[in-house]
Amino acid sequence: MTYKLISNGKTLKGETTTEAVDAATAEKVFKQYANDNGVDGEWTYDDATKTFTVTE
């Protein structure tokens, strides 16, 4: 399945996607992506749209 990340960081804003077997796997990928880009904030997940959002 395709999962989307919306980043509302102070230094990184935008969207990216990943293919993953489940939401937990996608979350690990996205949290590593955010960490690699210096984004640390509040996370939410919408199962209906398969979208994670991180806001700093």
Rank of each mutant, 00 (worst) to 15 (best):
K31S: 03
V39K: 03
V39T: 04
T53S: 07
K10V: 12
G14I: 15
T49R: 06
L12N: 07
A20W: 02
N8A: 10
N37R: 12
S7R: 05
A26N: 00
D36Y: 07
N37H: 14
D36R: 08
D46R: 02
G41N: 02
D46F: 03
Y33M: 08
Y33P: 01
V29K: 10
W43Q: 00
N35R: 15
N8R: 11
K31Y: 05
E42I: 14
K50G: 05
T51Q: 04
W43S: 00
F30R: 01
V21N: 10
Y3P: 04
V54W: 03
L12H: 12
Y33Q: 03
E42P: 04
D22K: 02
L5R: 00
F30G: 02
W43F: 05
L12V: 09
T11S: 11
Y45V: 00
T25M: 10
T44M: 08
I6E: 05
F52W: 06
G38V: 03
G38Y: 06
T51S: 04
D36W: 07
F52S: 00
V21F: 11
T51V: 06
T55L: 08
T49D: 04
D47W: 08
D40R: 13
A23M: 11
L12A: 07
K13C: 15
L5K: 02
T53I: 09
E56T: 09
N35P: 01
G41P: 02
D46L: 03
K31N: 03
N37Y: 11
A48H: 09
T49K: 07
T16C: 15
A48V: 12
T49W: 03
G38H: 08
D46A: 03
F52L: 01
T25A: 13
A23V: 11
D40L: 13
Y3A: 03
K31I: 06
T51I: 06
A23D: 05
A23G: 04
A24P: 08
Y3K: 04
T25K: 06
T44Q: 09
F52M: 01
K28S: 09
D47G: 07
F30I: 01
D36V: 10
T55W: 12
N8Y: 14
D46T: 04
E27F: 15
Q32A: 12
V39C: 06
G9W: 06
V39Y: 07
D40C: 14
T2G: 04
T16K: 11
K50F: 09
Y45N: 00
T44V: 09
E56N: 07
T55E: 07
N35K: 15
T53D: 01
K28Q: 10
T55K: 07
M1I: 15
E42M: 12
D40T: 14
T16I: 15
G38A: 06
T53Q: 05
T51K: 02
G9L: 14
Y3V: 04
V21Q: 11
D46C: 08
N35D: 11
M1V: 13
T49G: 03
G41D: 01
V29D: 03
A26P: 00
A48P: 06
V29H: 13
N37S: 07
A26D: 00
E42K: 10
T53H: 07
L5D: 03
K50W: 05
D40V: 14
T44I: 08
A24M: 11
E19C: 15
T25W: 07
K13V: 12
I6V: 11
D22T: 05
E15L: 14
V39I: 15
T16L: 14
T17V: 10
T11K: 12
V29E: 06
K31V: 05
Q32G: 05
F52N: 01
K10W: 08
T11W: 13
A26M: 02
A20Y: 02
T44P: 00
E56R: 05
M1Y: 15
V39Q: 05
V39S: 03
Y3W: 05
T2F: 08
D36K: 09
E27Y: 15
V21G: 08
K10C: 15
F52V: 00
W43R: 00
T16A: 10
E42Y: 13
S7E: 04
G41E: 01
E42S: 10
K13E: 07
K31C: 05
T51M: 03
V54P: 01
D47P: 14
L5I: 03
T11N: 12
T53M: 08
T51Y: 02
Q32H: 06
Y45E: 01
A26C: 00
V39E: 03
T18N: 03
T25S: 12
N37P: 01
E15C: 15
D22W: 02
G14E: 13
A26R: 00
L5M: 08
E19V: 15
W43M: 04
T49S: 09
I6M: 07
T18Y: 11
G9Q: 05
V54M: 06
N35C: 14
D46N: 09
G41C: 02
E56W: 10
V39R: 02
E19H: 13
L5A: 02
A20C: 09
K31D: 01
T51W: 01
Y45M: 00
T18M: 11
A34L: 11
Y45S: 00
E42H: 12
T49A: 05
V39D: 02
A23P: 08
T55M: 09
M1L: 10
T18I: 15
W43I: 03
T53R: 07
T17D: 04
E27R: 08
F30Y: 01
D22P: 00
E15V: 15
T18V: 14
E19A: 09
D46W: 03
D47S: 11
A26Y: 00
M1G: 12
Y45I: 00
A48I: 11
A34V: 09
T17Q: 10
A48E: 12
T2W: 12
N37V: 09
Y3F: 14
K13F: 11
K13P: 12
S7Y: 15
V39A: 04
V29A: 08
A23T: 08
G14M: 14
L12G: 10
A24W: 08
T25P: 00
A48M: 10
A34H: 02
A20Q: 07
V29S: 05
I6A: 04
T17H: 09
